[in-house]
Design a protein around this nucleic acid. Structure first.
Length: 477
RNA sequence: GCGGAGAUAGCAAAACCUGGCCAUGCUGCGGUCUGCAAAACCGCCGAUCGGAGUUCAAAUCUCCGUCUCCGCUCCA
C-alpha cells in the first residue's frame, strides 16, 4: 500500500487512484522566462522519481507538465530585453527542454503550452461568469472568492487573514474584494493580447493550469503537484475555479516539494544566488545532482552548499563502480557449478533489499531510506564479487536485475553497460593482468608494479582482491 | 500580525503521524586482506535546541521558551 502526504488534509493517506491502475497527474511546470535553476530541478527530479516509482509499481501514469509562456513575468522579461514574448518563450523553452534532458527527466505524456489554449481558457471564464462566480469590471475579469465557501482550505487560511490592506494588489479599484484574483486582464500598451467577450487582453495565471489539467485529465485529477510556494495563491485559486465549474473535487492528492536554500538563504534574483542547471552540470554529473536531490525527502527543505553536492558526486562515483562491476560480471560465461551457501545468502539479500526498498518508497516516497537499502546491498555485492570462491552468473544477474530496477526508478546510470571499445580494452587488460600475475608468482615486483603503474597512467586502475583481480577505467569527473 | 515547516554527531540525513537499545552516506581513527599500494569489507569515535510535564519507557506526545526558514506580493 502506497501512502502519500496530502497537503489538503495535512496527513498521510492511502493512495487510491480514481481509475484502478491509472494515475492522472498534473505537475505545475515552470514559467519559461529564464534558465532552469536548482529550484526547478529539485521539484522536477523529486516528482520524476515518484512518477518512475509509480510506473515501477505498474501504474499507467498520465503525467502532464505545462510550460507557462504567457504571464506577467514573461512580459516583464520581454520588455526588458526588447523582444516579443514569443521569442522569449521559444528561447527559454528550448533551454528547459535541453536541461531537462540533461537531468534525465522523463518526458511528460504531454507538455502543454499556455498560449495554445487561450480559447479554452476564455470558455472556462465565461462559464464561471454564467454561474455568477466571476465579474467583469473595466475590461478585467475577477473571481469572486467570497462566493466560494471553501476558499483557503488548501493553504489553511481564513479569508479574513488573506491579503492585508496596503499591498499593491489590494489597491486595485476594479476588484470588489482584496482577495479576488484575475481571470482575465485587460491589455496594456505594448503587451500581447487576444480578443475576448470582455475586450482585448490576456488570461490570468491560475486559469491556465485549471484549463489545461482538466482538458488533458478530466474534472478530477489523482495528483496535482508543485513547489510549496504554489500552495497560495496559485493552487488555492485553481481549486476555487475548477470546483466552482464542475462541482467536483479538483484533485485527490496535493503534493508539494520543499524549497532549496543556498547557503541558508532563499534562492532569489535579488540575492543573485541562482544556481542554474547548465552551470551545475559543468561541474557535477546529472547522476550526482539526482542523488543529491533524492537523498533528502521531497518535502524537507534542502540547504545547498558546495560541500553537499561534492558528497553527492562522491556517492555517485561509488555507486557507479559497483553498478558497472556487477553489470560486467553479469555478462560473463556461466560456470556450471551449483550454488553454495554464500550464493544463496546473496540471493536472499537481494530479495530482502527489494522488499525493503518497496517499503521505504511506499511510505510517502522515502527516498532517504531507499538509499540506505541500496548502500547496504552494495556492501554485500562488493564483498560477493571480491571474496566468493566463484562468482555465479545466476547470482550476479539477480543483483544486476535489481540494480537495473533501482537505476530506472532513480533515473541514474540508466545507460550503464560495457560498450564495444571497453570490451576490446578488457581483452587487452586481462592479458596484461595474466602477465602481471606471472611476474608476481616469481616475486618480480618491479615488473608487476610497472604494469600496474603504466596501466594507471593510461586510465585503468587494477585492484587486487583476495580471489581475483578487478580492473576499471579511472573516473573522469 | 496570520498561516506553515523545522532544530538529530565535524557535514548531510532517516525514524516522529502509530512512544520501546537513534538507520544510512561523507569525513576522522583503527583493523582485516595484500609483496606493496589502492580498493573493498569490518570495527571505533560521535548526536536528538533548552526547560518542564505525561509514561515502566520520550528524538517521537503535551506545555513553556530560544533560534532558523518559508508563505501571506511574481516564484519550483
Amino acid at each position: 500500500m502506497i501512502k502519500i502526504y496530502n497537503t489538503l488534509s495535512r496527513q498521510l493517506e492511502e493512495f487510491k487512484t480514481i481509475e484502478p491502475g491509472v494515475v492522472r497527474w498534473y505537475n505545475c511546470g515552470p514559467t519559461v522566462n529564464g534558465l532552469m535553476h536548482l529550484g526547478h530541478a529539485r521539484s522536477a527530479v523529486a516528482f520524476d522519481i515518484i512518477r518512475r516509482y509509480l510506473e515501477y509499481r505498474e501504474y499507467k501514469v498520465r503525467y502532464i507538465m505545462n510550460f507557462t509562456d504567457i504571464e506577467d513575468r514573461m512580459i516583464e522579461v520581454a520588455t526588458n530585453e526588447k523582444r516579443s514574448v514569443l521569442e522569449v518563450a521559444e528561447e527559454y523553452l528550448r533551454g528547459f527542454r535541453r536541461d531537462m534532458r540533461a537531468l534525465n527527466l522523463k518526458e511528460a505524456t504531454i507538455h502543454p503550452r499556455a498560449m495554445l489554449h487561450i480559447n479554452h481558457m476564455i470558455e472556462f471564464i465565461q462559464k464561471l461568469e454564467e454561474k455568477g462566480f466571476a465579474y467583469e469590471n473595466n475590461g478585467d475579469v475577477y473571481f469572486d472568492v467570497r462566493k466560494f465557501k471553501e476558499y483557503g482550505k488548501l493553504s489553511n487560511q481564513k479569508l479574513d487573514n488573506i491579503l492585508q490592506e496596503g499591498t499593491e494588489d489590494a489597491k486595485n479599484p476594479n476588484k470588489r474584494f482584496v482577495a479576488d484574483f484575475a481571470l482575465w486582464k485587460k491589455k496594456k500598451p505594448g503587451e500581447p493580447y487576444w480578443p475576448s467577450p470582455w475586450g482585448e487582453g490576456r488570461v490570468g495565471w491560475a486559469i491556465e493550469c485549471s484549463t489545461m489539467s482538466m482538458e488533458y485529465l478530466g474534472d478530477t485529477l489523482d495528483i496535482h503537484s508543485g513547489g510549496q510556494d504554489l500552495i497560495f495563491p496559485h493552487h488555492e485559486n485553481e481549486i476555487a475555479q475548477s470546483e466552482t465549474l464542475t462541482g467536483k473535487p479538483f484533485a485527490k492528492y496535493w503534493m508539494h516539494n520543499g524549497y532549496i536554500n543556498i547557503n541558508k538563504e532563499k534562492m532569489s534574483k535579488s540575492l543573485g544566488n541562482f544556481t542554474n542547471v547548465v552551470d551545475l552540470l559543468k561541474h557535477y554529473s546529472a547522476d550526482a545532482v539526482r542523488i543529491f536531490i533524492a537523498q533528502t525527502h521531497y518535502r524537507s527543505p534542502i540547504d545547498f552548499t558546495e560541500d553537499i553536492i561534492d558528497q553527492a558526486q562522491n556517492t555517485a562515483n561509488k555507486l557507479f563502480e559497483i553498478f558497472l562491476l556487477i553489470k560486467c560480471f553479469s555478462k560473463k560465461e556461466d560456470t556450471d557449478s551449483s550454488l553454495v551457501e554464500s550464493d544463496n545468502e546473496m540471493l536472499k539479500t537481494v530479495e530482502q533489499s527489494r522488499v525493503a526498498f518497496v517499503e521505504a518508497m511506499n511510505e510517502d516516497f522515502n527516498t532517504s531510506n531507499a538509499f540506505a537499502v541500496i548502500f547496504n546491498l552494495t556492501k554485500e555485492a562488493n564483498d560477493y564479487i571480491r571474496k566468493s570462491d566463484e562468482v555465479k552468473l545466476e547470482v550476479v544477474q539477480a543483483i544486476d536485475m535489481f540494480f537495473d530496477e533501482l537505476r530506472s526508478v532513480f533515473g541514474i546510470f540508466e545507460d550503464i553497460d560495457e560498450d564495444d571499445s571497453t570490451k576490446t580494452i578488457g581483452t587487452l587488460v586481462e592479458l596484461l593482468i595474466e602477465l602481471r600475475q606471472e611476474f608476481r608468482k616469481d616475486k618480480n615486483w618491479t615488473m608487476s608494479d610497472k604494469i600496474r603503474d603504466n596501466l594507471k597512467e593510461a586510465g585503468i586502475t587494477l585492484e587486487d582482491t583476495p580471489k581475483r583481480i578487478l580492473w576499471k577505467l579511472t573516473e573522469q569527473k
